[in-house]
């Protein structure tokens, strides 16, 4: 088996795969990186309301470069737009929404996720040159569901799905599902369970790139299985 037997999903395709699973009516917060791309991939006609930590509900598409509103940024400090029906509020209310479990979903990036759903996405070591946490810990404990969108392995090929995280934790036991460039994997009380894989990939090959046992989900998304 060689890598040429399958094609990894692009960053945009990972985002589209996440977006497909978000039902109409959910309130959703998107982290920086691949998660941010999810907003643009929600199927036409499906209403999903996006939240930003800095006090916005109802974020719309990226602005026309000629008509940027400089007072309207998202949590990643990128300029955004507000949909009709959108609104503003202050930071304490915004994090009240998060901590108070009002968000249906948060999609975050990660360095590592463990088989118990532990999330490491804020620091590579305790002694980081300039440690920064932002809202990651609040989102991890507060959203009804935490999904992760990330590459399956690091640039050096090391697994990001692990038995135990080596980086400092953002929150223990918070991740429910992981979307990678190779597969969609649920975190269950039994460990990692594969819901789908890119065409041509086998469970054995995926296991080789994963540092914790994988099982097929009881009801995998059968039509997607390569």
């Amino acid at each position: 088996m060689t890598r040429t037997d399958w094609t990894p999903r692009s960053r945009s395709a990972i985002a589209a795969r996440v977006a497909e699973d978000i039902p109409e009516g959910w309130y959703v917060n998107l982290g920086i990186g691949v998660p941010t791309l999810v907003a643009d991939r929600v199927p036409e006609g499906r209403e999903v309301i996006f939240h930003a930590e800095n006090g916005i509900l109802g974020i719309g598409p990226a602005p026309d470069p000629a008509a940027v509103e400089r007072w309207l940024v998202n949590a990643g400090k990128q300029h955004v737009t507000l949909l009709p029906g959108g609104c503003y509020f202050h930071h304490a209310d915004s994090f009240g929404m998060i901590r108070g479990r009002h968000l249906d979903l948060c999609v975050l990036g990660a360095y590592e996720v463990s088989a118990a759903g532990d999330l490491a996405n804020w620091a590579r070591s305790v002694g980081d040159t300039a440690p920064a946490v932002g809202g990651a810990m609040d989102l991890a404990i507060g959203a009804q569901r935490v999904w992760i969108a990330m590459e399956h392995v690091t640039r050096k090929g090391a697994p990001r799905l692990v038995e135990r995280c080596s980086y400092p934790l953002t929150s223990p036991g918070c991740v429910k599902r992981i979307y990678t460039d190779l597969a969609v994997i649920d975190v269950t009380p039994r460990g990692f369970e594969v819901r789908d894989m890119v065409p041509g990939l086998t469970l054995a090959a995926l296991q080789d790139m994963t540092d914790a046992p994988l099982a097929l989900a009881v009801a995998p998304d059968a039509l997607r299985m390569g």
């Binding site: 930071h91 915004s94 994090f95 901590r99 946490v133 809202g135």
Partner: peptide
């Protein structure tokens, strides 16, 4: 890095609250 400032790192929601 030069040890010329102290940092208390606080999660964003905890800072607001």
């Amino acid at each position: 890095a030069a040890g010329r400032i102290e940092l208390e790192l606080v999660p964003q929601g905890t800072l607001a609250e």
